[in-house]
Write a protein that binds this DNA or RNA. Structure first.
Lengths: 193, 193
DNA sequence: CTTTTTACGATACGTTCGTATTGTTACAGT
DNA sequence: ACTGTAACAATACGAACGTATCGTAAAAAG
């Protein structure tokens, strides 16, 4: 057996370079060569870990989804177990808004894959795996706080709202603060009274 | 003077071909050659009306925005002048959801340009021209119906919601009917009581 | 009829792309 | 020490790209 390297770490290194290229120069600029250069490696190495460009893109998408999910999990873990539902929902939804550079990158890359998924069914299928879990979580919290509301519909509305707000921040319709303000207003309406 | 042709009609012909390519094969497939083939014309002709690809893309974006605005205007004109604010807002927002093939195309192309605009500042500037008008209209109607609410914030929330719902329909999170149902629920909450 | 300008079609050029191929290096196993 | 294979690097290849150039047809102006 020859020398062993951490495959997962190498793939993550390449995926992170891909994200930077996508954010700084757009999805059109995401090529094997540009990603390799951004990562500081050769094209051959990228090819060694991703046999095709599609495999590279798919991995980068799945990984960024996991990254968001992990951060949400960390935020929720910081909260006391018996805290109010609104706090848990707010903590989660705020992680989906582009309020800092890291989340801006995630939102940008996410939307790039959204438009791509509208054409490639395989990508859309993978994207859809995560969503019901998020909606289910929000719906459960809404149901706990407000039994009189249609929890599922409210949860879907909140999820759509944050994605729409994220898009509006990306194109400059909204400032990050403005988006957070709009979300806060909705949370007050849903959980407030 | 040589023969005269309708420049605007030719440019529209090409833009519509671009939209079809973008929807059927994705933004990556939008090339001079593919658009020309889809329009049934030569590459030389496309070049005659758009000196660069960027000019072609910019025109296609502006035109689709105008198309949506025109359809909204037509819908509003059908309503009686003294009808309830909620009906005017609903008529407008429903035109932004991908509920049929035409609006699906518009939403898809619009989102493709969203992600592009996040990298090209010039495109983002043009996109931003239309938005305040939409928000202003919704805010005015909300204000008319509910003086007790923050009309501007509610309007921005509604606009973000429909854009988020449109995205969710595109990737298959929501069915068109589901998105319409979520929107209807929000309209009832805002205007209902 | 002649001229002039527009409206194209055809094609060529240089670049960049994804991928295949080939070569080299370094280390685990015997 | 030897060997085989994983881990790369370098490069080559054909296709597709945006754009430039050139040629031609047609119609309005004189």
């Amino acid at each position: 057996m020859p020398r062993q390297v951490d495959h997962q770490a190498r793939r993550k290194l390449i995926a992170e370079a891909l994200w930077r290229v996508a954010r700084q120069r757009g999805m059109d600029a995401v090529s094997m060569r540009h990603v390799a250069t951004e990562a500081g490696v050769s094209v051959g190495m990228v090819q060694h870990y991703f046999r095709t460009k599609d495999q590279m893109l798919s991995f980068a998408l799945e990984t960024i989804g996991e990254r968001v999910a992990e951060r949400i999990g960390a935020r929720l873990a910081e909260l006391p177990g018996d805290c109010a539902p609104v706090r848990r929902v707010r903590a989660m939804l705020l992680e989906l808004l582009p309020l800092d550079a890291a989340r801006h990158l995630e939102a940008h890359v996410g939307f790039a894959f959204f438009t791509r998924a509208a054409v490639e069914p395989g990508l859309a299928t993978r994207l859809r795996e995560q969503y019901p879990e998020f909606v289910g979580f929000v719906a459960a919290e809404v149901g706990r706080a407000r039994g009189d509301l249609d929890a599922d519909r409210e949860a879907r509305a909140l999820m759509a709202l944050v994605d729409g707000l994220a898009a509006h921040v990306l194109v400059g319709y909204e400032s990050p603060e403005g988006a957070a303000e709009v979300l806060e207003g909705r949370l007050a309406e849903v959980f407030g009274g």
